[in-house]
Amino acid sequence: MPLRIEIVSPEKRLVDRQVDMAVVPGMEGDIAAMPDRAPLMLQLRGGVVALYEGDKIVDRYFVGGGFADMGAEHCTILADSAQLMSELSADDARDRLRDLETTWAQIEPNDTDAHDRLSREIQSVRAELEAVEGPASV
């Protein structure tokens, strides 16, 4: 398994292992990191990072946005926040979504920066909910 994947959050390193492929949620669509790919830097949206060994997914992590640095032999994911999928809680995410939507209703309509930032956060939490519960319930 020639690809070294690292998932690091500001507070700790979550993953450092060898895999065959990692599918990463890019801002403009999912991207697979495979051995011998051209170096790429991309911004991530909130979504699921899937680690593959052979054709099987061995682990799934949820990242709440961040950046990724891919090269021929490595893929480093700088996640704003990251968690193992099995550790996510739908109730927690729903609470946060509710808080964010309350804030959304309160901010100034012409404050575009705040809008952008908040909409990105809301999208990330929605993606988290979707990842936990499956798309049907959102």
């Binding site: 890019g26 801002m27 403009e28 991207i31 051209a38 170096p39 790429l40 830097m41 991309l42 911004q43 950046f67």
Partner: peptide, 11 residues
């Protein structure tokens, strides 16, 4: 050789 997505400035 780095590619950037989105472009350098946004990133």
């Amino acid at each position: 050789q780095y590619e950037f997505e989105p472009d350098e400035a946004t990133l």
